[in-house]
Design a protein around this nucleic acid. Structure first.
Lengths: 194, 194
DNA sequence: TATTAAGTTGACCGGGCGGTCCGCTTAGGG
DNA sequence: CCCTAAGCGGACCGCCCGGTCAACTTAATA
């Protein structure tokens, strides 16, 4: 692969990730190309369809989370490890990632596999946290996989919320996962209110 | 207003609500019209733009919730009242209602006013629940307004979840709002798992 | 029933989208 | 340094969308 092609590919992926995060999945390919400073045709040289581009962006994010999960799976405190994983997930996943992943099979087989790997990693983290008594006995990996995007999603709709508002909702939701009578986390105050 | 026009208008609103809920905000006007069994032109006779149609649908939903909130504001048990309100909200709001409401001002002034009225009603419910000690002292109406759509939203992404899966996540989230050491609600088991 | 205004309809329009293509540019090995 | 193939870019295509319009249909009144 030629050097300029590799550079443009990296530029394109970065621009696409930013564009999808800011404007949603409906950004036009032309917009992404302009943001990357390349021509529209070049986008389709690197990725046959817009969906393939999206899949590649998602693949990077899912892999990063999976690796973080693998690292945290051997931590001393399984409860803290799960919380840190959820923090990473909420931090990165500002947007509607789950809606993409749900239809991952239709988009891309590799992405579908990556999702399965991430879910398996979540199962491990949740299992360890459950055994350690850090979360309720009936909480499943699926529960956590579904709930982990909620803080970022929900905070995104705040009228005046600061950029860290998601931490507040992560704390609230995580406390809902804890066993009966657990002392809840200190909940960060809302930075601003309506 | 002529009788057939009123009938078509009702048919149209029902079809639009169903279509938006099932297919998202991107359903074409033509699809909605076909679903209602009327011509596409008739849609634009009743509502000048697609956004106006959407605003009318949302207006009905927001008003219904506001009225339910007003009824619950005088209930004996403020904690139970808030929970019932959240149950109603999660039950109806399967979809991305918040994303619409956030841009309500851009869509329609009446909708913007209706949203403000609903938020005020939520503030009342939350205030009463807080005073009764049913929820944490630091939980605000904005918190609840943001979190109330999360159960429906999150459950919608479950691969095999039953239609009542949102109840599970409502219970978890509501428990996160309760004061320290509160006995959590019984959490409905997941109907199915991945 | 005759009249008419209100209501309905689908063909039609401009615009923006994803995706294609071919002439131009340029990296990089011999 | 030159040649060539890999890479680039933007004009272009077909499609579908929201929205318009003029011809047609019908409910309601006298």
């Amino acid at each position: 692969m030629r050097a300029d092609a590799a550079r443009n590919r990296a530029l394109l992926l970065a621009a696409a990730e930013a564009a999808f995060a800011e404007r949603g999945l409906d950004v036009s390919v032309a917009d992404i190309a302009q943001r990357a400073g390349i021509g529209k045709g070049t986008v389709f040289r690197h990725f046959p369809t817009k969906d393939d581009l999206l899949a590649e962006v998602m693949l990077d994010r899912v892999h990063a989370l999976t690796h973080a999960g693998k690292r945290l799976a051997t931590a001393d405190d399984p409860g803290a490890a799960l919380l840190e994983f959820l923090t990473l997930a909420a931090e990165r996943q500002q947007q509607n990632d789950l809606s993409v992943l749900r239809e991952a099979h239709a988009v891309n087989e590799r992405l579908s596999d990556a999702r399965a790997a991430m879910f398996a990693q979540i199962d491990t983290l949740v299992g360890r946290a459950r055994e350690a008594g850090a979360i309720r006995a009936d909480v499943t990996g699926t529960d956590v996989a579904l709930l982990m995007c909620a803080p970022g999603h929900v905070a995104g709709f705040a009228p005046h919320g600061g950029p860290d508002l998601w931490r507040r909702y992560l704390a609230i939701i995580f406390d809902g996962l804890r066993p009966h009578g657990a002392r809840p986390l200190p909940v960060p105050p809302p930075t601003e209110n309506s």
